[in-house]
């Protein structure tokens, strides 16, 4: 089946089987391998992308369901410079192997965009959907807390 959607601001299309997940389509058909596939059944959060601005698990969505939607992956969140979240992750040593990092950054970006005042408790609650086996979460939470100042409610920036 043909599917067409917007990926990181660009129109894309791909010929996929209906069973192809959005994650596999993005990685294998469209060559954006920043989105990582860990568990493939909605537990680990590594494949988190933004669909119409909302964090979703791209392994739990069919590529054909993304027809006409706006999809943003980790590649879409930074240009030549590190984004504030990426810089905070580096500063706080919030990653080691880096496998889970795209999922954490996309999730945290969606959270802080919608809730720039998110407190530590809220951040921890949201991160409960992402697994990291290296860092132990504390530096990840610290990095996201640190990056909050770069996100502001409309009109306050």
């Amino acid at each position: 089946m043909q599917v067409a959607f917007e990926l990181n601001g660009d129109p894309v299309n791909a010929d996929v089987e209906p069973r192809t997940t959005l994650a596999d389509c993005i990685r294998d058909r469209l060559g954006r391998t920043g989105t990582h596939v860990g568990c493939e059944h909605g537990v680990c959060g590594a494949c988190t992308v933004l669909v119409n601005g909302e964090a979703v698990r791209s392994c739990l969505m069919l590529a054909v369901q993304a027809q006409d939607e706006k999809v943003v992956t980790i590649e879409g969140l930074s240009g030549d410079q590190l984004s504030p979240l990426q810089a905070a992750f580096r500063k706080h040593h919030a990653l080691q192997c880096g496998f889970c990092t795209p999922g954490f950054i996309t999730t945290a970006h969606a959270l802080l965009t919608n809730e720039p005042d998110a407190d530590q408790e809220r951040i921890r609650e949201v991160l409960s959907g992402n697994l990291c086996r290296c860092t132990g979460y504390i530096p990840i939470v610290e990095a996201i807390l640190d990056a909050r100042s770069h996100y502001a409610r409309d009109g306050e920036k």
Binding site: P18, R19, T21, E40, H41, G42, C59, L60, M61, L62, V64, Q65
Partner: peptide, 26 residues
């Protein structure tokens, strides 16, 4: 039927469900 797919997609990934057709309510 599929809509959000948050229960059905894991069932498909584990091959606990193997439908011939998915009808999306999108």
């Amino acid at each position: 039927v599929i809509s959000g797919g948050q229960s059905l997609m894991p069932m498909l990934a584990f091959r606990l469900a193997a439908p011939d057709l998915l009808v999306d309510l999108k």
